[in-house]
């Protein structure tokens, strides 16, 4: 696959070549930055740490209409997805999360909604050169320039971006950009590798997950769960903002005689998530819910798909209102093993 160079001055021209596709890019003020489709014609700026809300919205919208219908009618109207999209400047950890979640949505049957979005989406990544305070991607199999899930990887080399195609889709993008790009040499690739290593060295938090997936089932009744969940508020922040969390709820919304069935994000940290109609709740308290969150990411998912369902983006640590720190929990788990 080829590597090209893009002069930063030509960035708007490159973005222009993407015309016809919906461009998702980080937008908004620093603190509220999130991925959203670009509306105005300007080329989006890519100087940012990471977005608060992960870009999973692009393939797994928070609200997805599955079909519409009329009460008493016989027709189902299934929304058509046709528009191609580009996720511009996605961080390698977030892109990796999509590769991880693909496993789940293709488990026994392919989820048509998810994979339709996925098919139409090209992921253009941006190498992470300044990792955040709570990043720990290198501990869970990722890295500042991890290519997993990406179609094209961009690296900021100062005056120019290095563009490396990873898949056919990425190659096609480079081809479409054509004369805007220049050929890249070994020098730039070396520079990128240096930046990546530097970034990886700057990642302060780490945890060695060896032994955790096998060990977690043995800690089912360990007092550690009571300890780490005591302060949990049961808010859904950690799961809603997790790039790999993928639970959803399906509801029918009816207004007058028109209705739609839609699916929305759900969170295993909520009481109603596991509530049975009978009133029985198999995960009755925050202890069980916290235990489930950790087990799901670090044990069940590994059993099933052989990959940890955590990309180490640090969002749940950054935004937990009561400082429940997954790295800290994993450290305690290792101690208890």
């Amino acid at each position: 696959m080829s590597a090209m160079l893009l002069n930063k001055e030509k960035w708007p021209d490159f973005v222009e070549k993407l015309a016809g596709k919906t461009i998702w890019a980080p937008q908004g003020e620093e603190a509220e930055m999130r991925f959203a489709p670009v509306t105005e014609g300007e080329a989006p700026a890519l100087e940012y740490g990471n977005t608060r809300v992960p870009p999973k919205q692009a393939v797994f919208p928070q609200t997805e209409t599955m079909f519409r219908f009329q009460l008493g009618g016989e027709e189902l109207e299934i929304p058509k997805l046709e528009e191609e999209a580009v996720l511009l400047g996605v961080r390698p950890c977030d892109a990796r999360s999509m590769a991880i979640v693909d496993n789940l949505f293709s488990w026994d049957e392919n989820d048509p909604y998810y994979f339709k979005h996925r098919e139409l989406l090209t992921l253009v990544g941006l190498t992470c050169t300044e990792p955040g305070l709570n990043c720990f991607c290198t501990s869970v199999g990722g890295g500042p320039a991890s290519k997993e899930g990406l179609d094209l990887l961009m690296t900021d080399l100062g005056d120019q971006y290095l563009l490396e195609a990873i898949t056919e889709k990425g190659e096609a993008l480079l081809k479409a950009a054509g004369e805007v790009l220049e050929d890249a040499g070994d020098e730039q690739i070396k520079e990128k590798e240096r930046l990546t290593e530097e970034a990886a060295a700057n990642i302060k938090r780490n945890v060695n997950p060896d032994g955790i997936p096998e060990g977690l089932p043995g800690l089912w009744e360990d007092p550690l769960w009571q300890r780490v969940s005591a302060s949990c508020l049961g808010c859904g922040t950690c799961t809603y903002l997790c790039p790999t969390c993928h639970c959803f709820d399906i509801q029918d919304e009816v207004e007058g005689f028109s209705a739609r069935r839609c699916r929305t994000w759900d969170s295993c940290m909520f009481n109603e998530y596991t509530m049975h109609t009978s009133g029985h709740n198999p995960r009755p308290s925050r202890r069980e819910r916290t235990r489930n969150r950790i087990n799901h990411k670090y044990s069940y998912y590994v059993d099933k798909f052989d990959v940890i369902a955590c990309v180490g983006c640090g969002r749940c640590i950054n935004l937990c209102p009561v400082n429940i720190d997954i790295v800290d929990i994993l450290r305690q788990v290792k101690e208890a093993l």
């Binding site: 509220e32 809603y240 903002l241």
Partner: peptide, 12 residues
């Protein structure tokens, strides 16, 4: 429009 309906405000 930024609200992601995580209900943190309610739970806290």
């Amino acid at each position: 429009s930024n609200c992601i309906r995580c209900y943190s405000c309610r739970n806290v």
